[in-house]
Design a protein around this nucleic acid. Structure first.
Lengths: 193, 193
DNA sequence: CTTAGACATGTAGAAACTGACACGTGCCCT
DNA sequence: AGGGCACGTGTCAGTTTCTACATGTCTAAG
């Protein structure tokens, strides 16, 4: 059901066509929150309209249909937001990979972690730049789309990415300790518990 | 395909039955990395065996089947770990909810965030207790391997949970600022935008 | 001896999601 | 006038995941 509420959320901000909503998805939700393809967006919009949570408010050129959220849809979205599940379902291939790293040789795991730390730092730099550029021209009227409804979300990234990067550095240090221990054991066989 | 590799990863650590793997899932991967139900686990184990990536090494009481990873399976897992995708698919209902909080009134959003901060703190306390209890009895026999699966995962939680909690506090402060601003701006305007 | 609860493994139908394919339009550039 | 490209909406077959149902065993407590 999450896709449904993701779309209602975007529509709560602003009416739009499937095409526009797909683009918005790619720019904002896709990276950290929820991934969806254009065909899924179109299908869900049709369902949303069938269920009375959204409606077509305009039909334009090239078969374009602009959807807007209805009052029912707004109420539904509100209920969903106010009742978070105690244990939300998580599926994050990225984190899964991190957890399974122990299956690699320490050296290989170290290389993967190093690349991960670097990628996280790159993401952090990009987000920092984005936030700063948004701060620079607040008088301009329209905030850049990714931040238009994402001030809190951007803050989330600014808190979580450094933690993620720091964890990677910590994990690398763990691996280095282990490599050192293994070397030490090779020379001097005493086992200290 | 992620479920497949999650199981291979668990099997790379230690052979086990579907039942045991399900429990392991719940204790380790489920919370931060990957969610799966027991029926999915059983189905995937059958497929894994059919594809030669795992094999039944023991059949015990109550129809119990113990699976072990094969060399092919190990090689497959290794390849998967060494070739991470550039843009992994993310679907996180929790983050999605954060992104969409703007659709609530500030007061409502504040309440959701407050509960979230408290829940995160509870998780952190529980994890801290768990880690300390594990550290306390090293004489007990098995020291946690620095690379073993739970060790990296626990470290991840210890890094990410405080960041998550701090973000929530920051977000609450943002909302309070906003509420204060709105009060200051117009006494006569009672309707939110 | 009975029963409750952990152990243990599955099937079936529905929903969500993926990847590939399909089709047509308005606009700009040359 | 024609080509290329962004715009714009969809179908379909196949895979993955979810919800609910189904079945039976071993063990410890009363």
């Amino acid at each position: 059901m999450s896709l449904r509420y993701a779309l209602l959320g975007l529509l709560a901000d602003e009416a739009g066509s499937g095409y526009e909503l797909t683009k918005k998805f790619e720019r904002s939700l896709d990276r950290y929150a929820w991934h969806a393809k254009h065909n899924q967006v179109y299908q869900e919009l049709n369902r949303l309209a069938a269920d009375g949570l959204a409606e077509v408010v305009e039909e334009g050129a090239r078969g374009r249909k602009t959807y807007a959220i209805t009052e029912t849809g707004r109420a539904d979205l509100r209920q969903w937001l106010l009742n978070p599940p105690r244990n939300p379902v998580v599926r994050n291939e990225f984190v899964l990979r991190l957890f399974l790293l122990f299956a690699l040789d320490p050296k290989e795991a170290r290389a993967v972690l190093t690349e991960y730390a670097a990628a996280t730092q790159r993401d952090l730099d990009a987000l920092t730049a984005l936030v700063e550029s948004a701060d620079v021209d607040p008088a301009d009227g329209a905030l850049p789309d990714p931040l238009a409804f994402g001030h809190l979300a951007a803050g989330f990234g600014l808190h979580m990415l450094p933690a993620s990067r720091d964890w990677a550095h910590w994990a690398i240090a763990q691996i280095d300790n282990r490599i050192r221990e293994e070397k030490g054991e090779g020379e001097d066989r005493t086992r200290g518990a």
